[in-house]
Every structure is written in C-alpha cells, then in structure tokens.
C-alpha cells in the first residue's frame, strides 16, 4: 500500500463505487463520441458515389461510361485517404460491422454492374433505379449503425 494514501484503494464504499462507475460510463461515452467518424463519412461517400455512378453510367452509355466511373473512384480515393490520415479511433466492434457493410455494398455493386450492363436483363431505368436505391440503403444503414454504436 502506498504510504502517501490514507486508505487502501481496494477498500471502497458504495458511494465511491458509484462515482467510479459514473466516471467509467462518462469516459466510455466520450471515447465513443469521437470515434469512427472517418469510417462513417467513408461509407456515405461510397454510398453516394456508387449509387450516382450506377445511374450515371447507364445514362451516359458505353461511350461516356468512363466519366461517372472516374468521378466515383476519385471520391472513393478521397474518402480512403481521409480515413487513413485522420481516423484516430474506431468504436468497439467496428471491424465486424465494417465487414458486413462493405460486404453487402460490394455484393449490391457487383450485381448492379453486371445486371444493368448494356443488353443485360436489368438494362432499364427501373432496375438501375432500384439498385441505386439499394446501394444507398445499404451504406446509409451501415453509417447509421456505426454512428449509433
């Protein structure tokens, strides 16, 4: 026992225990509040970029397909760089939630690219619109879950 302390730190009364529990709750809440914001922003960039790129490539046609896709990849790169550079903390359980969100987005994106290709089964505005909405929903829910975690 530290001779400078007037009591054994392991000998707590109920009042002190409640104070410590409140302090732990407050510290955890503060840590959560500042965490994962770059990942949340990145998910929103991916959702916005991929959904508009899907509609954009369909509207642009084969000749101009590269323009919306290039813009999408530029925005993806910006999002990843900001996440890499400024992401100082991620909330507990982030890895699992991130894999689920990115996995669902990747599956929806691949479906969108192949199904809406010229001459494919989904080569019409309704399918393109539905898949763009699905991309938006998947990433928005992922961002919401991360913000709420």
């Amino acid at each position: 026992m530290d001779p400078l302390q007037d009591h054994d730190p392991l000998d707590l009364d109920a009042v002190r225990a409640r104070e410590l529990l409140a302090q732990a709750d407050q510290t955890e809440a503060t840590a959560r509040a500042g965490a994962s914001w770059t990942a949340i922003a990145l998910l929103m960039v991916i959702g916005a970029g991929s959904s508009t790129a899907l509609v954009g490539t369909w509207l642009a046609g084969a000749d101009l397909l590269g323009l919306p896709m290039s813009l999408f990849f530029v925005w993806m790169a910006i999002g990843f760089v900001i996440h890499y550079r400024f992401g100082n903390s991620v909330k507990r359980g982030f890895s699992r939630r991130w894999l689920v969100s990115i996995g669902l987005w990747a599956a929806t994106w691949m479906l969108g690219v192949f199904v809406t290709a010229p001459g494919a089964i989904g080569d019409n505005i309704w399918v393109v619109g539905a898949l763009a909405l699905a991309l938006t929903a998947v990433t928005a829910v992922g961002a919401w879950r991360e913000a709420s975690a």
């Binding site: 732990a24 510290t27 955890e28 503060t30 959560r32 965490a35 991620v90």
Partner: peptide
Amino acid sequence: RFSLVAALNATDNTEFATLRDQ
C-alpha cells in the same frame, strides 16, 4: 489507468495523441 482502460473499452483501438487529449 482507470480512465485509460475505460476509454479503450469503448473502442477497438485508439491513437496515442487522441487518448492523451481525451
């Protein structure tokens, strides 16, 4: 140490400077 562990318990990982400031 109490505050350090409480903060880390809320995250998967935290960068040193962020934790120091918090």
